[in-house]
Simulated scan of single mutants.
Amino acid sequence: MYKSRWRTNFIFLKMINVLITPQAFTYLPPNTTKSLFGDNYTLHFTGGQVESSSDLIDYLQGMDACLIGSETINESILQNVPKLKFLSRFGVGYDSLNIKDLNKFKVQASIVQNINNEAVARHCLSLLLGITNNITTQNTTLSRSIWDKGLNISPEHTTVGLIGMGPVAKEFAKMCKFLGFNVVYFSRTKKEVPYTYFNTIESLIKNSDIISLHLKCTPETTNIIDTFYLDLMKGKYLINTARGKLVNETYLHKLLYEKAILGAGLDVFTYEPSVRISSQIRTLPNVISTCHMAAYDSYSISQVATQAINNIKYFFDNKLNKINTLVTNV
């Protein structure tokens, strides 16, 4: 009898080790994260994205779960961290997670949906207005004591074409329409939205002045914006807050450098943190770039953090039906 009670107490008091990598957690009040988890969890912070696989493997040693950012998780990682049971993605995208490998190693994973749509849409709008109002160009020239007003782009005569019409695109479209932009869109199926629909990406680009990407990154959509579509964007502008891998960045760099594509507003890159061709793109004078932080506003961070933490707690409390949203099938 005594032995049985001891085992019960031991299980209850066993600490669950969680690694937390997103930089967003450095912006939260010091005790907030700990209080959201509760007493049964021991937290380990990296302070930001872990860039190398070997470093990530080292960090994950002894971890039961990981609240993860954009780090790549695949077989080469999973085979070296046998204690890992659960990944809670800080955000909605999971193209960095190899679902097949996670299922193979019986590691569950979740994402957080429908919380930061408005924050990302506002960032899209900021990039759009940065382009149409020449904000970056004006800031650069004026900092050099060059007084050259230039000419802004009027919303009333500008068409914004959205490739994809998911939750973020819908919020962004409403903002654009409110400011007087004409809005058109492409999607695999026509949606119940008050905007002109094009059933091909080609026709969408041809009828737009500024193209904004709102697609998930999957094997089917990787490099979907290829040389053919980029050539169609000559004389136009590109905005991307979705995923860098949607675009052939090498050819995008060429056309931006030649100013064939007039400019771009980019929050995402093929290589993050920006290295190789991605780092060359962000230094071009006709590019407004931010470091994959469209969803990083104070409200969204706290809401996504709370849900991502709850997903971990639901997993270890065996309440899988409450998780937002499981992407594995273990």
Score class of each variant (00 low, 15 high):
187 S>D: 13
187 S>F: 04
187 S>I: 06
189 T>R: 06
191 K>D: 01
191 K>C: 03
195 Y>W: 07
198 F>S: 06
201 I>Y: 04
204 L>H: 11
206 K>L: 15
207 N>S: 14
208 S>G: 10
209 D>M: 13
209 D>A: 11
212 S>R: 11
212 S>G: 07
214 H>I: 03
215 L>W: 05
216 K>W: 01
219 P>G: 04
220 E>F: 01
221 T>N: 02
222 T>V: 04
225 I>P: 02
226 D>G: 06
227 T>C: 12
227 T>A: 13
230 L>W: 10
233 M>W: 11
234 K>E: 15
234 K>G: 09
237 Y>Q: 11
238 L>M: 13
238 L>P: 09
240 N>Y: 01
244 G>C: 04
246 L>M: 01
246 L>E: 00
247 V>T: 05
249 E>P: 03
250 T>K: 11
253 H>P: 06
256 L>P: 14
264 A>K: 08
265 G>R: 08
266 L>T: 00
266 L>V: 04
267 D>R: 09
267 D>I: 05
269 F>H: 08
274 S>G: 01
275 V>W: 00
275 V>G: 04
275 V>A: 00
280 Q>A: 12
281 I>H: 12
281 I>E: 11
282 R>A: 05
282 R>K: 15
284 L>V: 13
286 N>K: 10
291 C>F: 10
292 H>M: 09
292 H>K: 08
294 A>M: 08
295 A>K: 05
296 Y>S: 13
